[in-house]
Simulated scan of single mutants.
Amino acid sequence: MSGAPVVVVTGGASGIGLGISKLFAANGHPVAMLDLQEEAIEREGEALRATGATVLSLRVDIAKRDEIDSAYAAVRRELGPIGCVIANAGISSTDDFLTMTPESWQRMIDVNLTGTFHSIQAALPDMVEQKWGRIVTISSQAAQSGAPDRAHYAASKGGVIGLTRSLARELARHGITVNTIPPSLVDTPLAREGERTGQVPPLEVIAQHIPIARPGTPADIAAACAFLCSDGASYITGQEINVNGGSWM
């Protein structure tokens, strides 16, 4: 594809999503940053625009299709047709399965899985018309190994992996690749908050069990996304790209 395609990053206001937005913007892509955190998305979007980047920042609840459709209409109007989607937005919580409420379960599925569905499907007409597209979902190692007290989270992210594989097969004929990155430990504000509240051990302690003995960073995930969205990755689709420092299970 000639020129730098428009990139949509969901959950773009912080953590992994912000790292992805920064790298694509630095690489010359017009970037649409979508996030539920209105103040944060405006602040981070303005900071990137101040560097000369072409960035549109929008407050969106990805679990609501009407909000996704409205946001994507704004992206097309302001930036042009969508070429890449990084479906990163998601939520996480700890919840004993024995006492987990149906509402807690459903909210996790609505955001992490159905929100990914909305974020991808709404962009596909542009990609099909261009006969080119790149989709990267951000799943989780929890879906590969299981996660005590986070069954709803692991199940939602397992659904994202299954969705990714299915779409890779279905959309290949349109020149669209679909891959997923299931991170393990990543040093983000959300992870540090879990550390602070005692939901997870100190990140540096967890990192001792990773062959590359450090937590991952948003930049690590962003670099893999940039490659998967490049022409050099045109023969890679339906894959789990394990950016995890060598950790497993």
Rank of each mutant, 00 (worst) to 15 (best):
Q106C: 11
I20G: 08
E46F: 01
I120P: 09
I109P: 13
D61I: 12
T54V: 12
W105S: 08
P30Y: 00
I86S: 06
S70C: 09
R59L: 09
Y72E: 11
A87M: 05
D126Q: 08
A87S: 11
F97I: 15
G45Y: 07
D95M: 11
N112P: 04
G28S: 04
S70Y: 06
G115H: 05
V111A: 01
I62G: 06
F117L: 15
L98I: 07
D96G: 04
I120A: 03
V60L: 02
A25L: 10
G115I: 01
R107N: 01
K22W: 11
E78Q: 03
F24P: 00
D95F: 06
G52F: 12
V60D: 01
Q37V: 11
G90V: 08
S119Y: 05
I68D: 01
W105H: 10
G83D: 14
D69T: 14
V55N: 10
F117P: 06
M33D: 00
T54F: 05
E39Q: 14
I41Y: 02
K22N: 13
S93N: 00
R59F: 11
T101H: 02
D110S: 13
N88W: 14
I109R: 10
A26S: 13
I68R: 02
T114Y: 00
Q37S: 14
S92T: 12
A123C: 10
A71S: 11
I120Y: 07
G115W: 00
V85P: 11
